[in-house]
């Protein structure tokens, strides 16, 4: 649809413009709910709708008091700190293990490749409530099953601990790392590693000097996915964590369920800012990756 030809009939013209209007409305449906949050978060009143002052663009109708509340309220600050403590560690675990496995998976001869892939992707497919239920049971009483013997109970519990939440989030982030890194590796030219080996580089040198720089964009975007998965995750942390691991989404969830305070809108606006930032980083990475692989940026 690169424009309307001059010979188009009136009917085609009507259809062409009404199609654009329909698409415009759908785009509006996609984006408006998110954008509407931003001005509402500057509401001077504790309402969730536009006040007459705001519609008249009267400065008295706007204030940053909800933001001040976010930055001074100890509950929100604890939640923010927890989120920032959990997500990076979970990301590091998923990225390091995930990248290694993705490299292994993209070798030419991998036995049971399909089955392994299905298992590794499953945390993304299994509904979060089921993962959360299973982890809640298992982490409160972890054991190692030994076939034909029974089970060896481990003498610690992971529910309500920082480590438990990090492990759970790392598991949830892994599919994203696997998917993005294997996608990058599809375009990877294996003769480069062979050339490096030919010139005397060991496997470790080859990995860090040749392969890593080339697949880095995929690794970073996988890491971003894993980070946002953990940063945004609420169901599992709700079950596996305790009040000490209360994260930002958890605080928002309880706020929404019990008594909704306009501070949530301020937090939401900040999170929207973070997503826009992430989107830009990912786009830059995508272009860089395509350039590195010798494709023209689209």
């Amino acid at each position: 649809m690169s424009g309307l030809p001059t010979y188009a009939s009136p009917g085609q013209r009507v259809w062409y413009y009404s199609f654009r209007v329909i698409c415009g409305l759908i785009f509006f449906f996609l984006i408006a709910p998110i954008l509407v949050i931003i001005p509402l978060s500057f509401n001077a009143e504790n309402f969730f709708t536009f006040t007459p002052e705001m519609l008249a663009l009267d400065p008295a109708g706007f204030s940053t008091k909800h933001y001040e509340d976010f930055f001074s309220n100890s509950d929100w600050q604890l939640a923010l700190r927890n989120s920032l403590k959990i997500a990076p560690v979970a990301t590091i675990i998923s990225v390091s293990l995930g990248t290694l496995a993705a490299i292994g998976l993209s070798q030419s001869h991998v036995p049971f490749r399909r089955a392994i892939m299905a298992i590794l992707i499953s945390p993304m497919i299994v509904p979060l409530i089921i993962s959360a239920t299973g982890m809640y049971f298992f982490y409160s009483n972890p054991y190692i099953p030994i076939p034909f013997y029974g089970k060896v109970e481990l003498p610690f519990t992971l529910t309500g601990t920082y480590i438990g939440v990090v492990l759970a989030h790392a598991a949830l982030g892994i599919p994203f790392v696997i998917i993005t890194v294997t996608a990058t590796l599809v375009g990877f030219d294996n003769s480069l590693t062979r050339a490096a080996a030919n010139m005397g580089a060991g496997p470790v040198t080859t990995f860090f000097r040749i392969q890593m720089p080339l697949i880095l964009p995929g690794v970073v975007s996988g890491g971003l996915f894993a980070f946002i998965t953990s940063f945004d995750e609420v169901v599992v942390v709700l079950f596996v964590g305790s009040a000490g691991q209360k994260t930002l989404p958890w605080q928002m969830f309880t706020g929404l369920r019990e008594q909704i305070s306009p501070t949530i809108l301020a937090v939401a606006t900040i999170l929207i800012g973070i997503s826009i930032l992430l989107l830009i980083v990912l786009e830059v990475l995508r272009r860089r990756s395509e350039r590195l692989r010798g494709m023209s940026p689209s």
Binding site: I37, L40, I228, M252, A268, L271, S275, L278
Partner: peptide, 14 residues
């Protein structure tokens, strides 16, 4: 890319 909670709160408010 926007947080699920953000979108849900948006709808709750709207």
């Amino acid at each position: 890319w926007t947080s699920l909670l953000v979108r849900t709160s948006a709808w709750k408010v709207l």
